[in-house]
Every structure is written in C-alpha cells, then in structure tokens.
C-alpha cells in the first residue's frame, strides 16, 4: 500500500512538472518556427515594395502600400512566360520519364528473383548519393561532342533511364505488396510485363504521386543542371532567369522578389495539397530497416 501511495505522489508531481515542461517545449517550438517562417514573410512583403523602398534604412517590415506593379513588370521586363514554358517542358519530361522508367526498373528489383539482385541494388543505392560534380565534366564533354549543349536533351533524356532515389521508393513500395496479388495472374499465364502494367502499377498510385512530386520539385528548383547545360536565353528556366536577373549590372530586385514569390508558390501549394506524400517520401529516404 505504501508503495502505491508513493507512486501516486510521484505521478502528481510529475504531472505538474510535465505541464511546465510542455509549456517550455511549446515556447521553443514557436520561437524556432517563427525564425523559420520570417524569410517567407519578408519575401512576400518585399514583393509588394517598390524598388526604392527595399533599400530604405532603417528597415521596415511592411510595404507602404500593397501594389502589384512588381508582378506586372515581371511579364514585361523579362520574358517570364517563355521561361515558365521552358521550365514546364523540362518538368513534364522529368515527371513522365521518372515515373515510367523508375517503376519499370524497380519492378525488376522488387518482384523478380535473380542472382546478384541485392548486390546490383546496392550499386543503385550508392549512385543515389553520388555528387553531381563527379560526373559533371565528362557529361559536359560528352554532350558537347553530341551537340547537346544548349538544348533541353541533357536535362530531359537522362530521366528516362531511372533515377536511383525513385527506383528505391518504388522498390520499397513493390516489396510491400503481398505475393498473392500476382500469383493468380501468373497461374493464368500472364507475363511479367502484363502484371507490372495491369496489376502493380494501378496499385502504386500513392508511390507514383510521391515520385511525380519529387520529380517536379527537383526539376523546378534545379539550378546547376540548366547552368551547365543550357546556353542561350531562349531556353532558360525560371531558376536560371532569376540568377541572371541577380547578376545583372542592374538587378531590379523588386521584380526578382516577385519572381521569387511566383516560383515558391506552386511548390508550396503542391506541398499543402499533398503533404502526406512529401513527408512519406522524405521519411522513406532515411529508412533502412
């Protein structure tokens, strides 16, 4: 009986302590998340400020008035629609190429048995963390010899050969599907390609969504790829255009900030609509079982 009373007292004390603890933890989280969100607010407010307002000292948070001139100028001062179209072309090919090729390859690693399978899969995983700089120069020379520099080809063709991270995601998903699913089809004599396309892929919609989102993100945000492989202004992507604006003699920051908001928005919207897929995809990358 004495033991129980002691435990009871202890729990009471720990409840009070727990409340203080909770409050402190909330405070820390709120403080840190404010610091994380401030740059977004600054970008948003800044995009409404006039050019001269940006440079005014001392710094003021809010714009003098809400005006959309910066956004309007974005269409006239730079060929925004052209850059957007270029970016979307590359994004489109990357989404299609990545989802189709990576799921196809992943099926071979997940649902079929063959010797050396796990060893080869290790190579796939290893290339996942291979720095781009390692292959950048030989690729540049190779594409130069093929006449590909200054075209979209280096940024679109490679995604049709499977991306290691996406192969990994698909494979993890395929491995998780029960064997029985495909057993009946096999007994009926369906071949593997048919099983892949009619049974597995329709089930893989969540995984396809995740991969499509990641392919979109990577391409939309990519900077070094377009920087190294594209040449003239006609093919520039939004990222490259933003850097061009910045490095100009006359940077026109107010337009650049509006462009920044326009570039961040679609990503944030996709994220808010499909948060689950994002979090899953990122979390998966760290799961090693």
């Amino acid at each position: 009986m004495r033991g129980v009373a002691k435990l009871h007292r202890k729990m009471k004390r720990s409840k009070l302590a727990g409340n203080i603890e909770t409050a402190i933890l909330y405070l820390i989280l709120i403080a840190v998340s404010i610091l994380f969100v401030i740059p977004f607010l600054w970008l948003l407010f800044g995009s409404f400020k006039e050019g001269s307002e940006l440079f005014r000292a001392p710094f003021r948070w809010l714009p003098d008035r809400i005006q959309f001139d910066n956004y309007k100028q974005m269409f006239t001062a730079i060929p925004f629609l052209k850059y957007l179209k270029n970016t979307l072309i590359i994004v489109f090919f990357n989404i299609v190429g990545s989802t189709v090729s990576s799921s196809f390859v992943a099926y071979g690693f997940a649902r079929l048995h063959w010797p050396l399978r796990n060893k080869i899969f290790m190579i796939v995983l290893a290339t996942m963390v291979l720095p781009f700089q390692v292959t950048m120069i030989p690729l540049f020379i190779m594409y130069t010899n093929w006449g590909w520099i200054g075209t979209f080809l280096p940024l679109t063709v490679t995604c049709f050969f499977g991306n290691p991270f996406f192969i990994f995601l698909f494979r993890q998903f395929f491995v998780g599907l029960p064997k029985e699913l495909t057993y009946a089809a096999r007994v009926d004599g369906a071949n593997e390609f048919r099983i892949y396309s009619t049974i597995i892929m329709p089930l893989a919609k969540p995984c396809i969504t995740t991969v499509a989102i990641f392919a979109f993100m990577r391409t939309w945000n990519d900077f070094i790829g377009p920087l190294v492989f594209l040449a003239d202004d006609d093919l520039y992507t939004l990222s490259l255009a933003a850097q061009l604006l910045r490095s100009n003699l006359d940077p026109r920051w107010h337009i650049l900030l509006a462009l920044g908001v326009v570039m961040v928005m679609p990503v944030l919207i996709v994220f808010f609509l499909m948060q689950k897929y994002f979090i899953q995809g990122v979390a998966m990358s760290g799961i090693k079982e």
Partner: peptide, 28 residues
Amino acid sequence: VFFFMPTLVPTVIACVLWIWMLQPTTGV
C-alpha cells in the same frame, strides 16, 4: 509544415532571399 517549408524554396530564390536577410544595415 513550418520546418519543412524552407526546403521547398528553389536554391536561387533562397540565395536572393538571404542576400537581403543578411544585409549589414537594412537586413532582417
């Protein structure tokens, strides 16, 4: 969501943003 949001910002835009955030006299 708050902590994840910054990873979504395109690098170039993040750089532009931080150039301004880090200005010695007028920076946030």
